[in-house]
Amino acid sequence: MSALLSIDRLRVELPAAKKGMRTVIHDVSLDVQAGEAVGLVGESGSGKSMTTRAVMRLLPEGARLSGEIRFDGISIPGMDRRALRRWRATRVGMIFQDPRAHINPVRTIGDFLFEGVMLDGRLSTSQARERISHLMRAVGIADVDRRLNQYPHELSGGLLQRVMIAAALTTEPELLLADEPTTALDVTTQEEVIAIIDELRRERGLAMLFITHDLDLAAAVCGRIAVMYAGSIVEEQKADALGLATSHPYTKGLLAARPELGRRERRLQTIEGRPISAFEVGDGCAFATRCPRVRDRCRQERPAPTQVPGGRVACHFIDFIDAAAGSPAVGSGGGTR
């Protein structure tokens, strides 16, 4: 079966401040099937947002892209302006971290929502009105008529993010790109917004690429998770297989480092050092500078993704990790100094 969204060996370079190019994405291959939710998880600078920008063709000027991105078999980098506009307007919806940065502050909520539908041109004004009020109610906004006449500054962050979700769905897209949609929200509002996204996505059979730094959050709404580190996907697994024996040392380290409710550690396990940027990666494994299991081979040769039950992992010593099942992959404590 061919995927709805297929990213194949994506590599992105951006012009550096002085001269030359800096690699921000080394090698990303990821498929999203129709109706499937896939999480793309990583820390800051891992390239997860840049990947969605590449998909949407929103990369900064001067960016150099290689590899292929296909939507329903059609190359996105190959689209002409007209086709691209049409594709963005009708087949894909985006939800961003900061709704305020993506909505015109001097236009009403109603103007904002109608603009998308009317540009699409498939609906009459009354049909559009009906769809918009239906969606507003679906995202849990009561008092639709009053809200449509309000301006963005009159709405709370949680409410505005619901408007953005409604806006992303007005043209009935097949794919939803959600880039940290709840990071700026309070935790109770986050739960509400995530539940709304999940529910509407399932009802409509939408595919979703969900970008976040929070593994647990991604696992709650996605069937499959890809973990990014320094510009590459280091692991792709079924959500419930993350952190198990065959998981990547980085994923295991992330899971162990996060304090968890109901479990107080004397000390948190840490990953030594700091997350590196994609351009700092040498010839070897991107995680080699921080990996507790690093060997000479890791520093010299970049590991290719290996098939494991439930997914694929880019690590030379995946068998070794397998053999050490059950024991934590990352050393405790000492790494903080």
Binding site: G140, V187, E191, A195, L261
Partner: peptide, 19 residues
């Protein structure tokens, strides 16, 4: 607050009724 914290096995729930 506690119920809203994502954790393994967590399912987000809507607390408000639709519409």
């Amino acid at each position: 607050l506690l119920a809203s914290v994502p954790r393994p096995g967590w399912t987000p729930r809507r607390r408000t009724t639709t519409g």
